[in-house]
Design a protein around this nucleic acid. Structure first.
Lengths: 220, 220
DNA sequence: TAAGCGATCTGACGAACCATCAGATCCGAT
DNA sequence: ATCGGATCTGATGGTTCGTCAGATCGCTTA
């Protein structure tokens, strides 16, 4: 569900606020973009095709988005608004005792699921971020900041600290998030290479569990 | 240094084997591609610009490469041929006793260095692989297979096993490689977020060390 | 050293996409 | 039914794509 605040901030390229018809058109363009992104490579994604797919004309596309990147950014923006869930998985977990390891497995599973659903979008966010695009970097931060901080806090708290996480804990959180997201992004490739998703989830969960608690995971 | 075998396999689009002049032109095109890839985004990379940068014409580009992807693939291919080093870092390491943790730090450092040098290329390889491009996936496998297997073997050996690594160990190896490569790929972004590279290296090294040995890293 | 010849390069072109604008169309309000 | 603003699009000049046929290059040979 996109928040009203987010919808209210929708602007056409010329700055005006679209009415309901305009918002509908914009949304059809976004849907078309998402659909095509799942088929073609990012390089092949063309404004003309998006317009065709949305049943409108290229000129209309430019009425709502400066370029293709902006449309993808808007799509990913909806994503970030809808998903604060990953951080919650960490915070709602009890890392002590027997409940710790299942929590780590849930987190790994949540990443795998999230990426499975949003893979085409997320890989473009990843590329654009790596290319130094500030807008995408800000978005990616908004998307993953929460989990990263939640993990850093979990590490801090588990070891008896009570202040904000230090740089070592933050680095650990960021490293774990990198691992979780990259394995999730390349799940298909790793499966083709012969690795079952279940094994990958276990491997990730074990590393998360150890990183947070410093304890050897069960049955390892 | 590109091997003679690899050079001998160079083919023009029409199948013939280019002479020394042709190979020179091809190489200038590759160099131009690498240079432009460092400046523009992957989407903006255009055949026309590559040809201009190489001081030749677009038609010449198509004489050596089917499309831009093929050129990037050829570039990355040189990379894979030149770099078996990452696996060696793992294999030449002694993971037992005091030498274990420094080995983990060296591995993390090697990944950070490799990505710092080859970032523009590697992020495209990553995207194309995630998009399901088989040629790139094969290349990426060739590039990272060695380290992955080396890590899986290190895990197996350290725990007293002597056969080939099982699926759990392979999953661990693949997960560690994912972590190492993704953190390395996003080093700039993570630094902008406030994380020093040294802290990231430490966080990665600790996870690698623990994953291989099952022991708590020193001073942690 | 000059002619011959295959290897290499490029100008030119039709097709597709980009990005913009002026004008046409739509639709709710009166 | 009409009006006015919101929305849409046909048309367009510019750029890139990808492919020829023909021009140029430079090694080989005599």
């Amino acid at each position: 569900m996109v928040s009203d605040a987010a919808e209210a901030q929708v602007r056409a390229t010329d700055g005006r606020t679209p009415g309901s018809r305009g918002r509908g058109t914009r949304q059809r363009l976004l849907t078309a973009t998402r659909r095509l992104l799942a088929d073609r490579s990012y390089r092949e994604l063309a404004v003309l095709d998006i317009a065709r797919e949305a049943g409108t004309s290229p000129a209309t596309f430019y009425q709502y988005f400066r370029d293709i990147e902006s449309a993808v950014l808007a799509l990913a923006d909806e994503l970030a608004a809808a998903h604060a869930q990953l951080g919650d998985v960490v915070r709602q977990a009890s890392w002590r005792g027997r409940q710790g390891y299942p929590a780590a497995e849930r987190l790994a599973g949540a990443f795998l699921d999230f990426w499975r659903e949003q893979q085409p979008l997320l890989r473009v966010v990843d590329l654009a971020t790596a290319e130094g695009d500030q807008r995408f970097r800000a978005l990616r931060t908004r998307l993953l900041n929460d989990v990263t901080l939640a993990l850093a806090e979990a590490v801090t708290v588990y070891r008896g600290g009570n202040g904000p996480p230090g740089s070592a804990e933050l680095a650990t959180g960021a490293t774990l998030v990198s691992m979780l997201s990259h394995v999730s992004a390349h799940r298909d490739g790793l499966e083709a290479w012969g690795l079952a998703t279940a094994d990958l989830r276990t491997a990730m969960a074990r590393i998360v569990y150890w990183s947070v608690t410093g304890r050897r995971p069960p049955a390892g």
